[in-house]
């Protein structure tokens, strides 16, 4: 049986990255279809638990994205968030989940092209590792 396509959960903020993904769509930038987006009000609302839960439920990769620092719709949500994500990234790797499977970045509403690039790179990196099966988390 051929390997199933990888499943990736994208957690994005409403104001920048979700709109950025939209821009990419409107601009017809081609991108792999493996990412399922979850929209949250702000990256500050993202608990590292979300990413872990996605892995637990069988995601092969988790991508988090929000407004660039300085551009947060709520002024400072992403300043708090980036501290959490940095720790989350290190701890996720500590669990033996390869670094390539978890990425967090910033994509603004106008950066459709950047969204395309981020998604394409990330999916390619995860595809290289293949689906995760039978793991501890």
């Amino acid at each position: 049986m051929a390997e199933r396509p990888v499943k990736i959960i994208g957690i994005v903020c409403n104001w920048c990255s979700y709109a950025g993904a939209d821009t990419a769509g409107v601009g017809r930038y081609k991108q792999p279809p493996n990412v399922r987006l979850v929209r949250v009000p702000c990256t500050g609302r993202i608990d590292p638990l979300f990413a872990l839960k996605a892995f637990e439920k069988g995601a092969d990769g988790v991508l988090i994205s929000g407004c660039h620092p300085g551009d947060c719709h709520y002024s400072e949500g992403n300043y708090y968030a980036r501290r959490k994500f940095e720790l989350a990234e290190r701890m996720i790797h500590h669990l033996g989940i390869p670094k390539e499977r978890f990425r967090w970045t910033w994509v603004s509403a106008s950066e459709g092209q950047r969204w395309q690039q981020v998604v394409t790179e990330f999916v390619a990196a995860v595809e290289k590792l293949g689906p995760r099966e039978g793991r501890a988390l």
Partner: peptide, 12 residues
Amino acid sequence: KSNLLFQMVHMF
């Protein structure tokens, strides 16, 4: 899986 998730939640 959920045991480890539970501990990660506590840790975070």
